[in-house]
């Protein structure tokens, strides 16, 4: 079988276009939706922590967390109908159980260490969430949750370097980049 260089170029261009389109639509870029949701929740929630009294911030967190959970479950179900891995169906219930156990362990750790303030409590919860996300990315696909590592590093940097502005740091420099990263993956990946 012989083809000309221009035909070979056309074929490679078609492959690249299809690869981009697939990733964009159904593959790794599916993670962008969850990044945007999480980023928006953190942006709104931490801004509330920074600027509102504690009791009001709790209500804001509850509202955005419930909204985010509903959107994430709905999106996850829609994405899983398009693409499925060998582990998705087999371990669906176990994934739910894993997150439940992680939440219980997080509560246990909080009970043991008794955080000295709300910021320490916040960081402990965030780190548990990021541990869970990292575990998911190791089990399913690195593309699913690689962002947990830089986001965890940013959260720790804010906690230790800018304790006075921790919530603002989390909102603008952690929640904001998550949204931007999600949008970047959506439009450029």
């Amino acid at each position: 079988m012989n083809i000309s260089p221009s035909e070979a170029e056309e074929a490679l261009a078609a492959i690249q276009k299809m690869t981009r389109r697939t990733r964009h639509t159904i593959s790794s870029s599916g993670a962008y939706i969850f990044l945007i949701y999480t980023g928006m929740i953190w942006l709104v929630g931490f801004l509330a922590n920074q600027f509102l009294p504690g009791s009001q911030a709790v209500y804001v967190w509850a509202a955005v967390s419930i909204l985010g959970s509903v959107l994430s479950i709905a999106t996850g179900m829609r994405v899983s109908k398009r693409v499925q891995g060998p582990l998705t169906g087999m371990y669906g219930k176990r994934i739910g159980l894993f997150w439940l156990l992680l939440a219980l362990f997080c509560c246990a750790v909080i009970a043991v260490i008794q955080p000295i303030d709300a910021k320490q409590l916040t960081l402990v919860i965030i780190l548990f969430v990021l541990v869970g996300q990292s575990a998911m990315s190791l089990v399913f696909s690195f593309a699913y949750g690689w962002w947990a590592i830089p986001i965890g590093a940013l959260a720790l940097a804010g906690y230790f370097l800018m304790p006075g502005y921790f919530y603002l740091w989390m909102a603008v420099l952690v929640g904001g980049p998550m949204i931007l990263l999600g949008l970047f993956i959506r439009w450029r990946w």
Partner: peptide
């Protein structure tokens, strides 16, 4: 093939 290879190994598309 380009679309299927773009998926993670062992993933399948509807």
């Amino acid at each position: 093939m380009a679309a299927l290879v773009a998926l993670d190994a062992d993933n399948e598309v509807e």
